[in-house]
């Protein structure tokens, strides 16, 4: 699980162009949106594409997305349970 969390941090920094962050700046339980990493709605769409492309998970319910993207811990648990890739 820790390996997946690290992988997610690296992907988020790279794919969302968070140039001023390193993996050590992101705690597992930091909020990804709002006061945490400060991601926006376009970032959310990019994360949905990443889930589909890299883990074979398709999110279609916006409410589900809001829950899944709470933090790295929540996201990693969700991926571990639902991944097809």
């Amino acid at each position: 699980m820790n390996e997946l969390k690290l992988e997610l941090k690296e992907k988020i920094i790279e794919q969302l162009n968070l140039e001023e962050f390193t993996v050590t700046d992101i705690d597992d339980d930091d909020a990804l949106f709002g006061d945490g990493l400060g991601l926006d709605s376009i970032d959310a769409l990019e994360l949905i594409v990443m889930l589909d492309k890299d883990y074979g998970i398709q999110l279609t319910d916006p409410k589900e997305g809001k829950e899944v993207f709470q933090s790295i811990t929540v996201l990693a648990n969700y991926i571990a349970e639902h991944r097809t890739k």
């Binding site: 969302l16 162009n17 376009i42 970032d43 769409l45 990019e46 594409v49 589909d52 492309k53």
Partner: peptide, 9 residues
């Protein structure tokens, strides 16, 4: 086929 929303905007 994975269109990038952040590029599209």
């Amino acid at each position: 086929h994975y269109p990038s929303p952040s590029i599209f905007v």
